[in-house]
Write a protein that binds this DNA or RNA. Structure first.
Lengths: 194, 194
DNA sequence: AAATTTTCTTAATCTACATTAAGTTCCCTG
DNA sequence: CAGGGAACTTAATGTAGATTAAGAAAATTT
């Protein structure tokens, strides 16, 4: 289990004693997910908090016509989950799968509550994490409501320069909310204009 | 200051001793915002957490063509803020104003940190609050990416039945992401089909 | 209650993006 | 390294929703 990235990430927001670090570790598990395999499927309950240490996950919904809509990518150092399912422990409406071979660290919902009880600092950590996530969601919403497809694409490239290298174009299309055909046309227009 | 609604809201997630309640109260302020007046304008720093006790606020961005895009309404019992500005203490890109005469309870960012130090339970409270907000944002994103305007409208009506009564149609249009003209047309089509 | 502003409606025209349908290139995997 | 499915491209056609423009209705202000 590559716990270094997680500890580093945590230390940006709270500092842990050795003892607290040990308590944390006692609750953690790791798991590998092969490319194209699922971490969570619509209908299952999302019972864990998930932190990516290597590879790449995506979380997406499938609409009534079978089209996928990607809410978020999770490269190393990111958390991912169907928050409604985690909170209510009802079946998820979102899917999480691996775009590349991926390794995660996870903690069960019950153990997370135990961790909060044992080391209340983690309430703070996850509060800060959640607040940052809200800030991103607000920005994403603004972008989706006010920008054109080309502007959303440029924005994505600026925000995730390293992601854009390795991602299949159709995944980017699904994230910014256009069809792969339209994105393809858009990009060829952009490049010939230069 | 009508603090009852706030205490009631807090007690759904954590329970406070009388002493802790007093500490909380010592940090709180109240304020009235008249209809059409601003609580926060683009360019100002969002320095407080805001809880609505009566009336109705909205938070929105203004795009480069001057069009408004509403991210959220805040009726009594809701929190509202430009989270990026709150976290970074940089100028806000969002605006908050009153759709009706409104009364809020607010706490400054500094005092909130003091509150966390004095009563760590509040870290838990705001963590839970933030996590619920993420769940809503994920759902909103899914809706915006996968539903038609008519479906988003119906969804809004189901989610906020009481809001829809009092809101000007153009505000609803701005929230679901269509022009007022299109919403008007859509509604008259819907009603004549029945 | 007149005046002014804001909201809502209707209708014609326009456009960003979707859909459909090929064909092509790129990969994985055997 | 062959072949079979993904991923990407191109192009024709279709459509949800935008834009523009005007007038009507409703709400606010004086």
């Amino acid at each position: 289990m590559n716990i270094e990235l997680l500890l580093q990430h945590i230390s940006k927001h709270i500092s842990l004693t050795n003892e607290e670090e040990e308590i944390l570790k006692s609750f953690l598990h790791s798991k590998k997910i092969k490319k194209k395999h699922f971490l969570l499927q619509e209908g299952e309950v999302n019972k864990t908090a998930t932190f990516v240490t290597s590879g790449l996950l995506r979380i997406y919904s499938i609409d009534k016509n079978g089209f996928e809509h990607i809410l978020q990518f999770a490269p190393p150092g990111w958390w991912i989950g169907d928050m409604k399912s985690v909170l209510t422990q009802q079946p998820a409406t979102l899917n999480i799968d691996a775009i590349e071979d991926t390794e995660i660290i996870w903690i069960s919902k019950e153990d997370l509550e135990k961790l909060y009880a044992a080391v209340p600092k983690f309430e703070r950590f996850f509060r800060i994490l959640a607040e940052n996530s809200i800030a991103s969601h607000q920005q994403r919403l603004v972008n989706n409501l006010s920008l054109s497809a080309a502007e959303r694409y440029n924005n994505f490239c600026q925000l995730y320069p390293s992601l854009i290298q390795n991602l299949p174009q159709k995944q980017v299309a699904s994230y910014i909310g256009v069809t792969p055909e339209f994105l393809s046309k858009m990009l060829s227009n952009l490049s010939e204009k230069k």
